[in-house]
Design a protein around this nucleic acid. Structure first.
Lengths: 133, 133
DNA sequence: ATCGTTGCAAAATATTTGCAGTTGA
DNA sequence: TCAACTGCAAATATTTTGCAACGAT
């Protein structure tokens, strides 16, 4: 929805955001729902979805592209940064490596498109999956 | 599925791949189904999904999940390249701009992860959406 | 008091799967 | 031949929505 109204600060929204930020694993809506329910047992899955949508609108959450499986994953870290997606364990991890070249693109125009954000997923194999079978 | 068996070269799979490569718009499975059906009227949506899965296994297609909306989009261009996702029209376009720094990462190790592919989506507004309302 | 938000349940979408018949190698 | 593949339909999974009650401001 492109509804721009006066948002209210509800407990549900706050807890969804807190748990999203606490979770480094970039949880799916369902995973987040399970976690949030430990603190708010009566919250519904619909509310989690609605709040994820609202948090995206306000730039506090990002829906991740290019994961595998079919459930969308969410990231509670708003600044653009790199992600790593392991082909073995399928986990998505934040990378701390900074990529200045990428940041230089922000605000510039590329092939007639104004760039104001980026989303990078590097793919490969993590150390764990390399050593283990 | 991680089934590695002797794949057969069926007409359905061939047409799915052809139409996927012909389509610059990174179609969803449903869109592709509609296109493919013009050539193979009896093909089923399930077959399209199954073949997209198989084409990914063999590296001939890439799923661009979770871009916007809920339907996954597919890309029939196997070499890593940049994508642009317009916030206005929601379209995803290939960029021809080459990003050597990105390619340098391939084969290297970053924070203990072996990198062998990348997936980049730049976000912003395309010229069309900028001029139009 | 107002109107954004919630829980619930049902609807809408998207994707996967079982199966019996078909087909490529 | 024979296992991979297909169409079909049903099953699952995921996400959205209508609505009456609730609660933040």
């Amino acid at each position: 929805m492109t509804t721009t109204c006066q948002r209210r600060n509800t407990r549900q929204r706050q807890v969804v955001l807190e748990e999203l930020m606490a979770e480094c694993s970039h949880p799916t809506a369902g995973e987040l729902y399970r976690r949030v329910r430990e603190r708010l047992p009566r919250i519904s899955l619909g509310t989690v979805y609605r709040n994820l949508e609202i948090l995206q609108e306000s730039g506090q959450a990002v829906r991740l592209a290019g994961c595998s499986g079919q459930e969308a994953r969410y990231d509670g870290r708003p600044e653009p940064h790199l992600h790593f997606h392991c082909a073995g364990c399928e986990n998505i991890t934040d990378l701390e490596t900074v990529f200045p070249l990428m940041d230089d693109l922000l605000g510039s125009t590329l092939e007639n498109h104004e760039i104001d954000g980026y989303h990078v997923i590097l793919r490969g194999t993590c150390r764990n999956c390399r050593s283990g079978a």
